[in-house]
Design a protein around this nucleic acid. Sequence first.
DNA 1: ATAGGGTTAG
Length: 598
Amino acid sequence: MHPRPNLFHGKFRLGNFFPGNKHSLRPFSSDNNPLPIVTELISNQHWRSLKTHLQNANPITLLQQLLDSRTDPCLTLRYYKWSEKEFNLSHSLEHSCLLLHSLANSKEYSKMRSFLYGFVKNENPISVSSIFHAISISGDSFCAGSIIADMLILTYVNHMKSDLGFEAFKRAGDYGFKLSVMSCNPLLSALVRKGKIGDMEYVYKEMIRRRIEVNVISFNTVINGLCKVGKLNKASDVVQDMKAWGILPDVITYNTLIGGYCKKGRIGKMYKADAILKEMIASEVRPNEITFNILIDGFCKDENLSAAMKVLGEMQTQGMKPTVVTYNSLINTLCLEGKLDEASCMLDEMVGSGLKPNVVTYNALMNGYCKKGKMKEATNLFDDVVRQGIAPTVITYNTLIDAYCKSGRIEDAFALRESMVDRGIFPNVSTYNCLIAGLCREGNVAVVRKLIDEMKNKGVKVDIVTYNILVGALCNDGESRKAARLLDEMVKIGLRPNHVTYNTLMDGYCREENLRAALNVKTRMEKEGMWANVVTYNVLIKGLCKKGKLEDANGLLNEMLEKGLVPNRTTYEIVKEEMVDKGFVPDIEGHLYNISGS
DNA sequence: ATAGGGTTAG
């Protein structure tokens, strides 16, 4: 409901307009109508005279009369704002919506936008349901109602209130208002940004069902959302949907889909990405620079630098020059592989071709030096960044802070955190995670608690990584049962444990030789619809081996292969040390030797 | 209003 009560009902009379009139709601007669005078005063912004004219009149009733008459809604709006300020009152939601209706009928859209902002800006905004109720009862124009609903959604989305935008989208459906891509597309992309893919799918399906117009951007946004959470088959279905809708996939559609496959860390993902590229070319959609960058980065993430270089060659054959992004992918990969000299050569090549390294380039290089423990070189690079007038980002700082923490220089890490704040760059959840992990490694629980309190105070929300760090820390202390309680706690605050969470806990139980508990975690994880991954199997196989349960371990190895998971180097090492070297021959030994060679 | 690069947890 409206926050401020109506203080004026009953206190004012329009007697000065209509001597003898007893009914303040219907005070104007046709022969003695003051509205022209009033509107004249409003239009000339003669507020002082208006106030004199009003005297004891009820400002709310006057608004009602302006709304009832055919007064220009812009003038009514002016009066609305002035009277709220002048009399320190808040007009009713119904009157506000009446005004919105007339603004909509006069196509005063930008005025509507700023008016609607008043509905969303407050700490405790008016509820979506009461706004919709008011929209529906205060006007009979279905068209205007639809425009108001549409713009309301857009206003919510533009002011980071996508939850309310989503609620309004649903309400608009209940009332049968017709929405447009103008609000629905931003809503879709806001939901994707927030990771609310379920809600996004709902909006998409409703857009189709309610026959809201959709365009290529709607589809691309939906495909992007689905790719982000790895629902690649669904994303491909949407590509079929759009074709059925008569909208052809464009370069962005294909790039999004290729990127989706590249990000999904499955074996053979690049094969699939390549297949889509071929399909794209067959559909006569020309790959652009971004297409190549996505492919190059995909191969880089696959640790297949030579394939990445081949794509780079193809890119140049097609007449496209590598961009900063291209180089950043390559430099980052070289850095992660520890090939810092080659990374530095690549940097020279990049500069030689006239490209200016940006903060991402430097972050990648700094990370490379940090991971090799070369802090001096890393901090020198940081100074270069500042000297060149490039603005460091929170990631620049996090990279260094993490490196300090990992090299036991917690004090330096905290000092850096101070200096980033001085620069106006604020620690985010990752910054805190780096520090918390560092403190956990030192066993400094007191300061960990302090930091978590501080996060709460500063409005930095803990995330799944924070919990995983704490779960790992408790497990390292032999407190896996306590760690398990953290899983329930995170679920309570709306965080879903992921593979890392479960695997960390399983590892804790294994190290405490509580195999039963570890296997129960696997069951729980599978009940949550999450498949055990290679790390899960490695942890459990190792745990079983340590307890001498080699047959059970062998069974898990087989299960892993049946699920199509590919053992990695760690798997091989465990099997060799714990089984083969001890005279036990696992069923899949031959297979393991094959992968160990690669 | 849609696509690409950099940090933290197993």
